[in-house]
Each structure stands twice: as C-alpha cells, then as structure tokens.
Simulated assay, not measured.
Amino acid sequence: MSETEEEISADRVVETLEILLRAPPFLRSPKLARFLRFVVEEELAGRGATVKAYTIATQALGRNPDFDPSLDPSVRVEAGRLRRALDDAYAQHAAGLEVRITVPVGGYRPRFGALAAAAIVPEATTETEPEDPFPMVATERPHAVVVGFSPRGQAAVIALLAGILLVLCIDLGLTVSTRMTSGSAGSGDIAVRGR
C-alpha cells in the first residue's frame, strides 16, 4: 500500500534527506546538496509554492541579488543535475531510504512518496548465483522509464566491444597478409610462365 504525500511525516522526509546527502552524488557536489536541502526544507516549512529559480539561486546557490533567471539558465541546469543525482542515489545507494524525494520536471517544488521495502532492499544473492556482468539501472521519469547501464556495466560493454574490435582487426590483417602473399606468389608464377 502506498502512502500519499500527506501521510508521510516530515521526520521521515528529513531522515531520508540526511541519508541522501551522504550518498556519493551529493558528497561530490556540495552545490547539489545545498539545492536539495533548500527545496526540501522550504517545502516542509510550507513555503514550497514560493520556491522559484531566483530564490534557489540567491538563497541556496550563493548567487548575487541581481541574478536574472530569464538571462541565466544555471538554476535549470542545476535542477537537471539534481534530478540525475537523485536517480543515481536511489538506484545505487538506496539502503535505508523509506521516502522517494523527486523534483518533477517543469518546477523546483519537491514531491515525496513512500518506497516499498522490496524496492529498497536488493535481493540477497547466493554464492552459486553468477553475478550479472551487465547490471541495468532503471530510473523513472514522467511518462517514460529510462534504462541504462551502471558504470560497471558500461566498462564491461566497452571491454567486450574492444575485444571484438581487436579480433576483427587481427582477422582483417591476416586476410590482407594472406592475399598479398598469395598474390605475390601468383604474379611470380605468371612471370615464370611468360618466359
């Protein structure tokens, strides 16, 4: 049973926020961490409707009061990065998270949804079960589901493609070498016959 936004307590949202801010995507980017903290705290304080690009820029991202969101798209760019960081945090580091925090496209006001326990805890693997060399990462976006390879899966695909390319280059080299060798012998035969 999923909980509605009104049924999720502010304490659970704050606990989730603190866990998210310790996830690698937010540890790597203090700017994104400030952005997320600001919009979540404003929403919990009842000021979510007043969260606009200007307030985020000046109060969370340290921009000057003369910031003009119609001329400077930096808040929109950072919002896109924030959405990707949230997707990554939930896909790769979801342990202990009970609430899904999203910032829907087209605005900066966060939304909160309950996560099912099965969605948070990965299934335990046995020692005999082979590890998937190409793990998939699925992220939800409005009206679409985007699926991509994790960084480890990307490295495996690149290594596989490099190996295939190497085999093809060796095969091509051997084919050309064989043809050149047989072509040289054939032209020598013709020259001998012509004498």
Results as ranks from 00 to 15, higher is better:
residue 5 E to Y: 04
residue 5 E to Q: 10
residue 8 I to K: 06
residue 10 A to H: 15
residue 11 D to K: 01
residue 13 V to D: 06
residue 14 V to M: 06
residue 20 L to N: 06
residue 21 L to T: 15
residue 27 L to E: 08
residue 29 S to N: 04
residue 31 K to S: 12
residue 31 K to H: 00
residue 34 R to C: 07
residue 36 L to Q: 01
residue 36 L to E: 06
residue 41 E to M: 06
residue 41 E to P: 01
residue 47 R to S: 12
residue 52 K to A: 13
residue 61 L to F: 10
residue 67 F to E: 03
residue 71 L to V: 01
residue 72 D to K: 12
residue 72 D to N: 08
residue 73 P to E: 10
residue 74 S to W: 03
residue 76 R to E: 06
residue 76 R to Y: 01
residue 80 G to W: 00
residue 80 G to F: 05
residue 82 L to H: 03
residue 83 R to L: 13
residue 83 R to P: 00
residue 84 R to N: 10
residue 90 Y to K: 14
residue 99 V to P: 03
residue 105 V to N: 13
residue 105 V to E: 08
residue 105 V to D: 09
residue 108 Y to D: 04
residue 110 P to R: 12
residue 111 R to M: 04
residue 114 A to R: 05
residue 116 A to M: 09
residue 116 A to W: 02
residue 117 A to S: 07
residue 118 A to S: 14
residue 121 V to H: 10
residue 123 E to H: 01
residue 129 E to T: 15
residue 130 P to L: 06
residue 131 E to G: 01
residue 135 P to K: 13
residue 138 A to D: 00
residue 142 P to Y: 05
residue 142 P to N: 03
residue 144 A to I: 07
residue 146 V to H: 09
residue 146 V to W: 00
residue 147 V to W: 02
residue 150 S to F: 02
residue 157 V to W: 03
residue 158 I to M: 14
residue 167 V to Y: 02
residue 171 D to E: 08
residue 175 T to G: 12
residue 175 T to N: 11
residue 177 S to Q: 12
residue 181 T to N: 07
residue 184 S to W: 15
residue 190 I to V: 10
residue 191 A to R: 14
residue 191 A to Y: 05
residue 192 V to D: 05
residue 193 R to V: 13
